[in-house]
Design a protein around this nucleic acid. Structure first.
Length: 118
DNA sequence: TGATTGACCAACT
DNA sequence: CAGTTGGCCAATC
């Protein structure tokens, strides 16, 4: 263990993913690539998904259900306690999901680079 | 200790 | 037009 964990300065790239994910407003969704791109590493979108895997491990609540792939598909639903939990959560926030795909995805898409831009 | 995987995206062939 | 590979950071085997 004891990987290369930074002492206590700025958050790691990994922790920044959780920070951005927590900033997603209710009823909005974003993509792995959008978060990765916001952090400056669009090609690291795979790690965003891996970060979500560790999301439940974080002390802070991370709305991983609001993070989907570029096609608006609930690719990460399989990692939730129940397969329908992710869809239920999104539908509970006013979204419409059909066949594991978010309808009107572009309308509910929330880009951190457009809302969290400095 | 090194190699592999992981909820993706984009470019190249 | 469709299939394959590269890439990034961190964790697991």
């Amino acid at each position: 263990m004891k990987s290369n964990q930074p002492p206590n300065s700025s958050l790691s790239w990994f922790d920044q993913v959780f920070e951005v994910a927590r900033q997603i407003p209710v009823g909005k969704v974003t993509t792995y690539g959008a978060i990765a791109r916001y952090l400056g590493t669009a090609q690291s979108s795979r790690m965003v998904g891996w970060a979500m895997n560790q999301a439940h491990q974080q002390a802070k609540y991370v709305p991983a259900h609001r993070v989907v792939n570029r096609a608006g598909l609930l690719t990460g639903k399989h990692h939730f306690p129940t397969l329908v939990m992710m869809q239920e959560l999104l539908e509970n926030e006013g979204l419409t999901i059909e066949n594991d795909q978010i309808l009107c995805f572009s309308q509910h898409f929330w880009d951190p680079s457009e809302n969290l831009k400095f």
